[in-house]
Design a protein around this nucleic acid. Sequence first.
RNA 1: CAGGGUGUAGCUCAGUUUGGUAGAGCGCUAGCUUGGGGUGCUAGAGGUCGCGGGUUCAAGUCCCGCCACUCUGACCA
Length: 581
Amino acid sequence: MRVTQMLIPTLREAPAEADVSVSHQLLLRSGMVRKVAAGVYILLPLGSRVVKKIENIIREEMDSAGGVELQLPIIQPAELWRRSGRWDLYGPEMFRLQDRHGREFCLGPTHEELITCLFAQEVNSYRQLPLLLYQIHDKYRDERRPRFGLLRGREFIMKDLYSFDKDEDGLEISYRKMYDAYNRIFSRCGLNFRAVEADSGAIGGDVSHEFMVIADQGEDQLLYCSKCNYAANAEKTPCPSDELRKAADEERPLQLAATPEARTVQDVAAYLQLSTDQVLKSLFFNIDGKLVVVLVRGDRSVNETKVLSYLGADKLEIADSEELRNNFGIPMGFAGPVGLQEKTSVTILGDTEVKYLYNAVAGANKSGYHYLNVNPGRDYQVDHYDDFRVAQEGDPCPCCGGSLQMQRGIEVGHIFKLGTRYSEAMGASFLNEKGKEIPVIMGCYGIGVTRTMAAAVEQSHDQDGIIWPSAISPFHAVIMAVDQRNQQQAGMASEIYQQLTAAGIETLYDDREERPGVKFKDADLIGCPVRVVVGKKAITDGLVEIKRRSGGEMAFRTKEKITGYLQDILADMLHKQGTKN
RNA sequence: CAGGGUGUAGCUCAGUUUGGUAGAGCGCUAGCUUGGGGUGCUAGAGGUCGCGGGUUCAAGUCCCGCCACUCUGACCA
């Protein structure tokens, strides 16, 4: 491709709208994407090429794992979603619309309902199983807060595959196929990533893994063991309780203390000159319409996922100050479990760590006061103790007891075993060998394509711009003449460009009559793995300059040897990147 | 959703305090110049100052309402 024939609007400065994320800024500046609305983007020619590269890698791996591609509609009738119960469950994140007759539809945030419905209509026999159907298509989610550019958009491209099996063993095989395929996909994309155990969330099901691109700015925390292979999303990591068990300290008498204006754990601890792990944190949640109190140690976070799963509930929201005041007459910031049950019948859940938290500080349910020396059993009762906290770095590994390490990551893939949650709701059943009609067993497997593109930039860039892994770079190489008006230079650049292109090396020819500095800057920003420059030396000595974007020495080759040389180094890069994990 | 910030040329922003002819740099167009890391000079084009209402002789500027974008938070009581 010639630059003069393309649309590559690079920017010297990042637009003010570009937020804190590096990938957002670089994708805008390098002319890959443009924003249309919050969380909605145009993929410009370069960005579109990157997306296609990623899609094709995914497509190849899905196909070789037995996947079959199809395309489901974006617009979906409400009726389908009512059948699975998710029309209400999905809430304001779903884009909803009506047609001219007032019939309700949504823009598909995901496609379980539709695919399951298709199965119900078209598949009847175990002889047709297993079946792995997938698509690469747009998804729509009205995020409460779109941010980080393509990392959290409201319209995004996703690959979603659904597996249909006749039994659990079959599901296990399908799941394993996808797990392996995902490892190959992200390796081939040249990404540094890690597969972790994950929570399956609102989508239902039990077993689940997330594929995380390792990046310091990632939204997810993942914990992995330095001794064994254990790795999980922090929210999923179980916290052991046995070794916490310790003898009760001497129980000191309960005491009321004035703590004016001290509303947060940090404030209270600082005011009383204690560490935060001596404070009892009492959080009120509205869970499926009922108020529940969860107690954790002051230095810990409540794990909403674990609470939901313990209660078998669907929706959890932190109670606001009004709810607290109206239901309990408790001022925000001074809530605690002491005397709570005398006033109300609220359920109190306690994290196991709290069970052994003696002589703690807790809110006195009275503005400006906390209790000192609060003890479990004596001063308050807990309905259920269990693991309700978020695991942290340094906690023991649930597998081997080793110490857990923390990394941040960007979730680019997520695979789930769904079981029969959707097939039962949508009536997707088949006749088995014995002629008995049973619901099909499902799994679903997603990859955020546009998010993967942004995650790659997040992971691989420098101060000058993007450094694409070669497998997903918009072009393999960029070529330019230092002086495009010099006929000898331009002629040779053009000749080499054609030669490379003919050899299957995707080459971008910067044939603009710009100053060399401008072309160098743009080449760095766009980040193709190899740069070829035809300058004076090429004319006088016949030597053309080749430089890798990732750094290192310049190389010089005659124009006859360039194609072979580039093929070698590109193959070398692909090999290295493909075996990164 | 709560709280903050910002909306002026394609981009980055000044001008708003104290109302009085619409600005700069970059980019764009033309010419000359220059040609290995965003050349230099000259001349140009380009704006319903986010939208609507109000105050005023006069509003980018003051007042009211709305919208968009954005940041932080939305568990730490």
